[in-house]
Design a binder for these strands. Structure first.
Length: 289
DNA sequence: GTCAACGTAGCC
DNA sequence: GGCTACGTTGAC
């Protein structure tokens, strides 16, 4: 009985130690010799840190406060970034639409940062293809919407706030006109943005269509194969110690898996169902839920 | 559903 | 080229 009580106290102490280690890793200055890999991940022999293992939920609980702060900071960063660059929620945008403080340069910077992200690659490629096709389109003025001439540009501005929220679209691909395609011509998939069959043929010749199709197919397949990366923000990601006890740690040679306690929460989920890009903060942003 | 094993992308 | 770890597959 007393032994168990002592053990519990010992566990508590260890948990506190682990919590400090995993949540405030930057402040750690343990005198114990640690085995680290290149990434700074501590792979303790278990005798110390994980002799008394805990459920993942416990690890998460110990880190929740710090994680909340980190997430709050990340969100604040993202929000400030979005605000400073002009991407806002619709209501906010509606309130400030009249303001001219948002320069195209700022918007361009944001978009380029979005498009630079691995997850945004397909978006950039789609935008480039659209740019090419729109260059072939005789857009005479900004009022000539619709590919088929009489196709009404339904509510691109209504549903998305404003096309000015999307410089690539509002620029019409650099031809100075409005976005020349009907929204229905697009197919949004997890692999990227595609033009519906026949859409290209309406605006380009067969050769351009074939080329664009092949390019988009290549882009989609490449993107589908691309490995996702850890978010770096969730508690498991912030954890720096391999437990050496879970099946992943035990079978590292053959399993090739990261410690279960360090498996990113985002990677545990299935790949995003909506169109998702990675914000500069590293947080995923989905165009559609 | 979980788990183990494998292939291999991505990084150094 | 070696290492880490994500994605896939098959067994359970």
């Amino acid at each position: 009985m007393s032994a168990s009580g002592g053990l519990m106290e010992g566990n508590q102490a260890r948990e506190d130690e682990d919590a400090r280690d995993s949540c405030c890793a930057d402040e750690e200055s343990s005198p114990v010799v640690e085995r680290r890999n290149r990434s700074g991940i501590i792979s303790t022999p278990l005798s110390k840190s994980l002799k008394h293992s805990r459920a993942l939920s416990q690890y998460i609980a110990t880190c929740s406060a710090a994680a909340a702060v980190a997430n709050a900071n990340a969100n604040r960063l993202a929000q400030s970034s979005l605000v400073s660059t002009g991407i806002k929620s619709h209501s906010v945008d509606a309130q400030h639409r009249g303001q001219v403080g948002l320069t195209k340069l700022d918007r361009g910077a944001l978009v380029s940062s979005l498009l630079d992200s691995p997850s945004g690659l397909h978006l950039a490629q789609a935008a480039e293809l659209l740019r090419r096709t729109s260059m072939l389109l005789p857009v005479s003025d900004s009022s000539s919407l619709g590919v088929g001439g009489d196709i009404e540009a339904v509510s691109a501005s209504d549903s998305l706030g404003s096309v000015t929220d999307f410089p690539l679209l509002s620029n019409g691909g650099g031809v100075g006109g409005a976005f020349p395609f009907h929204p229905g011509l697009f197919i949004m998939t997890p692999a990227g943005v595609f033009l519906a069959d026949g859409a290209l043929s309406q605006v380009t010749g067969a050769s351009e269509q074939q080329q664009a199709h092949s390019e988009m197919a290549a882009a989609a397949s490449a993107n589908a194969k691309k490995k996702r990366k850890r978010c770096g923000l969730c508690p498991p990601c912030r954890r720096r110690i391999n437990c050496e006890q879970c099946s992943s740690c035990r079978n590292r040679k053959t399993g090739h898996q990261i410690c279960k306690f360090r498996k990113c929460e985002e990677l545990k989920k299935k790949p995003a169902g909506g169109l998702e890009v990675m914000l500069p903060t590293g947080a995923p942003f989905r165009w559609f839920q």
